[in-house]
């Protein structure tokens, strides 16, 4: 594995405005290679907006997003089409509301994720129609890769069932496996633990730790489930009202008074004190 602390994704001065609404204000952050980086914050803090900027679904108003690939090549994501971010910059994502291909089987879902290499192997379909050997080989490899992931999410038995038929927790895991099948160097998960029961979220933790350990893939996640965030994150970034208020390890963030005030909540008697603090923070931000 490459140097543990080499940056994988650098975000500099990211700002996103929707008309008069400032959703993300001058956010700078770094995700390191081989780390699990968590982006947390209360509802409406701008987490998903950041995500959509990173993955090309929105074009940021200002700022620069750089992806440093393992082979040394850099990609400026804010200038790329969304599908090229996955295809060329190796930056895969999942969705808050699961977006599987419900009418297609579990295996087909994993095969579609390997569309680009398969397309090349089939010589842009022409060779595939005549069944050339290199395509058959590539297809076999793709199936093996899908099987590998099916084993790790315990869905081998259900490979030929429709994805919409799976229980919710399995759908979440399948979506992660599907994103991993694109061969990403950074995997972005938008609330992967939403709607999971404690046992399922425990399994999710294991899966994410496995991804980090085995696949040389960094993980960036947005999450509300503190079990997941505090349990597995190496690095936590806290957003509030579109502004970064804390950045550090789980311990550092947990003890940060700003974070406690903004996110984790405070005791009743502390409300006033915290209120002052928030005003000060807001004043700082305005300056």
């Amino acid at each position: 594995m490459a140097d543990k602390k080499a940056p994988l994704l650098t975000v500099e001065h990211l700002t996103m405005r929707f008309g008069g609404l400032l959703a993300v204000n001058d956010l700078s952050m770094t995700a390191y290679r081989g780390d699990i980086t968590a982006l947390i914050g209360p509802n409406g803090a701008g987490k998903t907006t950041v995500f959509n900027c990173l993955t090309g679904f929105y074009k940021p108003t200002e700022g620069r997003i750089t992806m440093h690939r393992n082979d040394g090549e850099d990609f400026l994501l804010e200038r790329m089409d969304d599908f090229r971010i996955t295809k060329n910059a190796r930056f895969a994502r999942t969705f808050q509301n699961i977006r599987l291909f419900g009418g297609m089987t579990v295996l087909e879902n994993l095969m579609i994720a390997q569309h680009n290499p398969l397309m090349r192997a089939s010589k842009q379909t022409i060779g595939g129609i005549f069944g050339i050997a290199s395509f058959k080989r590539a297809e076999k490899e793709a199936i093996e890769r899908a099987e590998y992931w099916l084993e790790h999410i315990n869905l081998t038995q259900r490979a030929d069932d429709a994805a919409a038929d799976l229980p919710y927790g399995d759908q979440r895991k399948l979506e992660i496996a599907r994103a991993m099948c694109t061969g990403p160097e950074l995997l972005c998960l938008d609330e992967p633990a939403a709607g999971l029961n404690p046992a399922e979220s425990e399994e999710l933790n294991k899966l994410l730790l496995f991804v980090r350990a085995e696949c040389d893939t960094g993980i960036l996640l947005i999450e509300h489930d503190m079990n997941v965030v505090m349990g597995i994150s190496d690095h936590i970034i806290v957003l509030d009202y579109g502004v970064k208020i804390a950045d550090g390890t789980a311990e550092e963030v947990r003890s940060d008074p700003k974070v406690i005030a903004a996110y984790l909540g405070v005791e009743d008697e502390e409300v006033d004190a915290v209120g002052h603090e928030i005003e000060e923070t807001a004043a700082e931000v305005r300056q």
């Binding site: 679904f57 969304d82 996955t86 895969a92 969705f95 291909f101 579609i112 390997q114 089939s122 379909t125």
Partner: peptide, 23 residues
């Protein structure tokens, strides 16, 4: 072939297609 599967994926969910790097 991958192209046919991509057509069907497009019918199922276009946004998911793009997120998987499909043009």
């Amino acid at each position: 072939l991958p192209i046919g599967r991509a057509w069907e994926a497009l019918r199922e969910d276009e946004i998911a297609c793009r997120s998987l790097g499909l043009n």
